[in-house]
Amino acid sequence: MNDTAQAAPSAPIGMLEKIGGSAGARRHFRYFDYMMAAFVAILLLSNLIGASKLSSVGGFTFGAGILFFPVSYVLGDVLTEVYGYANARRCVWVGFFALLFMALMSFVVVAMPPAADWGCASSGDPQFAALVAKGSAGALCQTTYVSVFGSTWRIVLASVTAFWAGEFVNSFVMARMKVWTGGKYLFTRTWGSTIFGQAVDSLIFYPVAFLGTWTNADVVHVMITNWAFKVLWEVVLTPVTYAVVNFLKRREGVDVFDTDTDFSPFARTASV
């Protein structure tokens, strides 16, 4: 680690070394791997655990995953702001392939025939005793397993495509606005990038996943309300974003500006 990186923890924000995007892509960062791991973990968990449950609070019904999935966009903002577009691009691709593997694993595991004596919470519940007696514990457990982890090809295609496109738009807007604003007014970048990134995400996901299954009115209604909710989440989490960005910049000792970056999603990141 070089002397600049070692001195970074005590460097005030105004005295950070300003570097271009290509230099940032080649630089070794102390906390980048941790941030990428957190980004991918939240992405996978919000799709795996939250996506299949509908919740109703105060008469408002929503997908439970919406509470946590926007955190991945906050982390995407942090990654772009602190480490530059090229490094954020790496995270998007890692998340994309992680989602593909999760989908493949889900399809394979769900399709495998269950063991007749496979036990689960449902098979041990007295209210399902009659169903177990008519069939088997495994058959009942398979039904509940499919309801949680099963998904149609449309949902998977919509989710993966929407994430990929939305996250790249989010990072692009974030990086370009940072250059335009000279690194000032972070909240304008986080809000602006989320408005555009989540708009692309929603415009892809809901029509691909539900058009023809839901009414057109329902697709439009859910698409708009969920987009607004995600943007609101970004606004609410602004103080957290500021705290994380400032902490990481001080620790890394640099401020990356994408003045010389190739913004193609398929551009190759320079070697460290």
Rank of each mutant, 00 (worst) to 15 (best):
A137Q: 09
T144K: 09
V78D: 04
E252D: 01
G14Q: 12
G212W: 10
P12K: 07
G183W: 00
I195F: 13
L237V: 13
T269D: 01
L75D: 05
T215N: 09
T61K: 12
S56K: 14
V160R: 01
T269P: 03
M177D: 00
Q127Y: 04
N47W: 06
V236Y: 09
V272G: 14
F107R: 06
T213I: 15
G124N: 07
F68W: 12
W180M: 09
K178T: 08
D258H: 08
V156P: 03
W153S: 12
F187C: 06
F62M: 14
C91H: 07
V179D: 06
A217E: 12
G150Q: 06
G21A: 09
L16I: 03
T238C: 02
G63C: 13
A103V: 11
G24W: 00
T161C: 04
V108H: 08
L44W: 11
W214Y: 13
A228R: 07
F32L: 15
L140Q: 01
A103Q: 08
A121W: 05
I66D: 04
V240M: 10
Q6C: 02
R176Q: 05
L203D: 09
L54S: 12
T259C: 11
L48R: 05
F39M: 07
Y73V: 15
T61L: 06
Q142H: 10
G84A: 09
R250N: 08
S151C: 04
S193H: 02
L100V: 15
S123C: 03
P126E: 02
A25C: 02
S147G: 12
I19D: 02
D260F: 03
A5F: 05
S106M: 13
A165E: 06
A88D: 03
S193N: 04
A267I: 00
W227D: 13
A51S: 13
A137Y: 00
L211C: 10
V92G: 03
F187W: 15
A209G: 05
R189K: 13
I42Y: 00
W227Q: 03
S123Q: 07
G138P: 01
G21R: 05
N87V: 09
V245N: 09
A51H: 06
Q127K: 07
D255R: 05
T80N: 10
F205V: 06
V108A: 13
N87K: 15
N87D: 06
N87E: 07
V74M: 15
A111E: 05
S193R: 01
F168T: 01
Y206N: 10
A41W: 00
A11F: 00
L43V: 05
N170S: 01
L99H: 10
